[in-house]
Design a protein around this nucleic acid. Sequence first.
DNA 1: ATTTCGACTGTTTTCGTATTATGGTCGAAA
DNA 2: TTTCGACCATAATACGAAAACAGTCGAAAT
Lengths: 197, 197
Amino acid sequence: MIMNDKKDIKKETILTVAEKFFARFGLRKTTMDEIAKTARIGKSTLYYYFKSKEDIFAAVIRKESRILKSKLEENIARAANPREKLSAYVLTRMKHLKELSNYYSSLTDEYPEHYSFVERTREDFTKYEIDTLKTILAEGIEKGVFQIADVDTAAQAIVITMKGLEYPLLLQEDAGNMEDTIHNLLNILFKGIESRP
Amino acid sequence: MIMNDKKDIKKETILTVAEKFFARFGLRKTTMDEIAKTARIGKSTLYYYFKSKEDIFAAVIRKESRILKSKLEENIARAANPREKLSAYVLTRMKHLKELSNYYSSLTDEYPEHYSFVERTREDFTKYEIDTLKTILAEGIEKGVFQIADVDTAAQAIVITMKGLEYPLLLQEDAGNMEDTIHNLLNILFKGIESRP
DNA sequence: ATTTCGACTGTTTTCGTATTATGGTCGAAA
DNA sequence: TTTCGACCATAATACGAAAACAGTCGAAAT
């Protein structure tokens, strides 16, 4: 456990370099030699800090997930009530992905190719998503603004719907339409769970 | 316009042959020579009835859309009230795609590759979907069981959500989970549009 | 003990090229 | 009107050689 701070800093440096390559060239076309050269270290050193290229990629995904997580928490905290929190959650999440797809130009191309790998890597984030949504929904029930029979399944349904909309969103299938659609879905969703006097 | 019946019959024969090839090998790996040989006609004859390979593929898609359409209409007619109609619509549509993916083994692989082409070809079907959903929703409003401000956007939101769920459904990302998810979504949806006393 | 790396390896990817397969055309024949 | 054989330009494939690649290892540096 000695020198762990120093090791983490170095890992971070490597990730910063790797991130840029993955963004521009994707997983397949990014080479370990390039990462090593750009980071000014030997390629072998890379393998001292990470066990494989996929491992680095996974670390980048997890880092990205942490950024989104803090973004979500920030926007949720800003929201005044459960309704606004839920709205902020869905909108922030979908907008973030959209922005990401501009930076990660390879994201759209490699989406099908690496779908299951990314999904496996995001497992923790997905758990976080469900937990957070459950918390928001539960808070809404407690405050008497939501009326939901099964919070678990409701949270799961929301997550799967958001995931489902990811690919069409990346393909910009309906481009401008998409944000409207999300708003409409939110409206229907709210009418669906809002308790009425 | 002479001999149009005979021509249509021949076209139908070609489609039946082509369909099986597309199902087993997908669009790319199916060759015009194979279709011609199996249909026992010259390849040039194929081009007398269809203007390109994609044209045949599009015809197969449209045929499949018609089948789904009649399936939908059958199940909608069977349903007693707007709520059951809407439920039947969504479930029939999603189950049909799932069944189709068993038959069309290439569907999953080629989904990203031909996404935009299939989408363009399905445009008419998509219009039908929105129209049908609007009719169901309008009927629900008229009978006082639904309460929706904007029928158009609601119908659109439902269609886009169903489309969004297609790819995860094909990838069987949550396999058994998927049908449950659709049910959950339907439940939320219903709570969202049902009028309450 | 931790960290770094050069040299190495077995496997993929790339590349140039020759060859085949394929989508599509055309004019003639039925 | 319908059919098709012969034909064409292009795209896919096959293949061997060369290059690039992910990952290993033992030794050197810290």
